[in-house]
Design a binder for these strands. Structure first.
Length: 198
DNA sequence: TAGGCGATGCTCT
DNA sequence: GAGCATCGCCTAG
């Protein structure tokens, strides 16, 4: 499969708009072991001044990538055992990001299986922890520039334009009522309770 | 299908 | 010491 990289000007520099625009786009990871790629089907926006955002309390060592220029990767450890992958989304110094929550696997399914242990194709990238595991994402890739990097990058949509739905974000307690989760309607690869994806 | 809960290690208070 | 942008396994219905 040929993936056409996204470049400067292809994506909005605005957190909620970016979270919506990324639905349908492709995430690609190239390694010596092979290539994995998936269609982004679910995202969440963490805006400047958002009490639920890791950037809310200010810049720290862990969240420094959120304060970098747009489209840098912010990858952090959660619950002691999983990694989550975000895209920095505002001008340098602002502190915001888009969490990528689920992908529809397009290429490298066997490699994803090797990284994940046995898992049904539908479950390989359904949820932020699982997609990070399937793509082998960890702290080493934190801070990569996703429009320039050779190993981890964003590419153009493959297939039909998505129908995008919104809902509350999953797994947070503060500012939980804001509808900042975006997902592809009808996709079997979206995470979360069914009640959030009608 | 839904809900409860333990695993596990940072980060922040 | 509490809380956490999660997941997988268990039970109940």
């Amino acid at each position: 499969m040929i993936f056409e990289r996204l470049g400067e000007g292809d994506l909005p520099i605005h957190t909620a708009r970016l979270a919506r625009a990324l639905i349908g786009c492709t995430l690609v990871r190239e390694t010596a072991a092979g290539r994995t790629a998936g269609r982004i089907v679910e995202t969440e926006a963490y805006e400047p001044g958002d009490p639920a955002s890791h950037a809310y309390a200010g810049k720290r060592e862990r969240n420094a990538s959120m304060f970098r220029a747009p489209f840098h990767a912010y990858i952090y450890r959660i619950y002691g055992m999983y990694w989550c992958f975000n895209v920095a989304s505002e001008p340098e110094g602002e502190g915001a990001g888009v969490l990528i929550r689920a992908l529809e696997p397009l290429e490298g399914i066997e490699l994803m299986r090797e990284r994940s242990g046995s898992a049904a194709p539908r479950d390989l990238c359904r949820g932020p922890g699982r997609l990070a595991r399937a793509f082998g994402l960890d702290r080493l890739l934190d801070g990569r520039a996703l429009l320039l990097d050779e190993e981890l990058y964003l590419a153009r949509r493959v297939g039909a334009p998505p129908r995008v739905g919104t809902s509350r974000r999953i797994g947070i307690s503060r500012a939980a009522e804001r509808r900042l989760r975006f997902y592809e309607r009808g996709s079997l690869f979206v995470s979360g309770p069914r009640s959030l994806s009608p």
